[in-house]
């Protein structure tokens, strides 16, 4: 049974040490910072933050991958081709999503009162079409990944087998796995490449920002006002699925138009029955193996387009 804590960004006012202490008095913390890419090994701040109670052990997934790509160029080429195929799938998904999501917002914005009920029904239908598109994309991505894994079986290649064994050994000596944010695509790739999901066992996992996204069942990319494009959220890929029923939205306050009832409602309904939880600074959601508890002050989206939260001091469930 995995115990999981999801947090908001940790850069300015980190609380990860405090959070781990509330669930694990002392021990060793294995850290995945693959989302930081080339900065992966810059762990000084994290070591300082975790302090005396915890020894920090970097798993170095990016560095190991780079080393192994040099040793196994055939696999690197295969991974690049796999990445190209995934990109093409994403482009096609985006092509369809742009039109499908546009129609949702157009129907929700329809102001003709004489056909309000009809518009609402059409909007519901359009939203179901987006949900079907999301599900289809995740299915295609999963199938693509499965075909690659079956064809190439990275775990059977000598260099990778050694690296995986070493990672497993390092992780086995740790009580906690911490997964930091960064580039969620790179992070997911490296977690998958080294088979981290199967190594987690029952240890506590604490993850923030992109790390939190990677731990959920479905990874949703989002930005309501990007420099280019329409800003439709994209159901990118399956995550590690360490706990069900939650879609993680780090930096929601800055990336999403949370005041826009239509957009919030549409996103909440699109992701239902999962709950869209805003992981801003100070946010926290804990999974005990059976249920989520959302910390006071942490907000989630409602189907009505509002943001709900437990009052500070109230019981969190």
């Amino acid at each position: 049974m995995t115990r999981l804590t999801l947090l908001g960004p940790q850069r300015r006012n980190p609380c990860v040490a405090h959070v781990i202490k509330t669930r694990q008095e002392s021990g060793r913390v294995a850290v995945v910072t693959a989302g930081w890419e080339e900065r992966e090994s810059e762990l000084d701040e994290m070591r300082a933050h975790l302090g005396e109670h915890f020894e920090t052990v970097g798993l170095g997934l990016c560095a190991r991958a780079e080393q192994l790509f040099h040793e196994d160029p055939e696999l690197l080429t295969a991974l690049q081709a796999h990445s190209d195929q995934r990109l093409r799938l994403l482009e096609l998904y985006r092509l369809r999503l742009d039109h499908a999501a546009d129609s949702v917002y157009a129907l929700l914005a329809d102001v003709d009162e004489a056909r309000a009920e009809l518009s609402r029904l059409e909007a519901d239908d359009a939203l179901r079409a987006v949900q079907a598109l999301d599900a289809r994309n995740l299915q295609r991505i999963s199938e693509l990944q499965a075909r690659f894994d079956e064809r190439w079986s990275p775990e059977t290649r000598p260099a990778f087998a050694d690296a995986r064994a070493e990672i497993a050994e390092r992780l086995a000596a740790c009580d906690v796995l911490a997964i930091a944010g960064g580039h969620v695509g790179v992070l997911l790739d490296r977690l998958h490449l080294f088979g981290i999901r199967a190594l987690i066992g029952e240890r506590l996992v604490v993850a923030w920002s992109a790390g939190a996204m990677a731990c959920t069942e479905r990874v949703l990319l989002f930005h309501d006002s990007p420099p280019q494009g329409r800003g439709h959220a994209e159901m990118y890929a399956p995550g590690l699925a360490l706990a069900p029923g939650l879609v993680a939205l780090p930096h929601a306050r800055t990336r999403l138009a949370l005041h826009d009832l239509r957009r919030v409602s549409a996103l909440a309904r699109r992701c239902a029955p999962a709950t869209c939880v805003c992981l801003d600074e100070g946010s926290r959601a804990d999974w005990d193996g059976k249920a989520w508890s959302i910390a006071p002050g942490t907000r989630w989206m409602t189907a009505e387009g509002t943001l709900a939260e437990h009052a500070v001091g109230s019981a969190a469930t």
């Binding site: 960004p9 850069r11 989302g35 944010g181 960064g182 580039h183 969620v184 695509g185 790179v186 920002s209 992109a210 996204m213 990319l221 989002f222 930005h223 990007p226 420099p227 280019q228 494009g229 994209e234 990118y236 780090p250 930096h251």
Partner: peptide
């Protein structure tokens, strides 16, 4: 340049959550 380059070659902004 910003408008042109980011339209022609969109970056990974949607992927990065620090």
């Amino acid at each position: 340049l910003r408008e042109g380059l980011s339209w022609l070659f969109p970056g990974p902004l949607g992927f990065v959550y620090e």
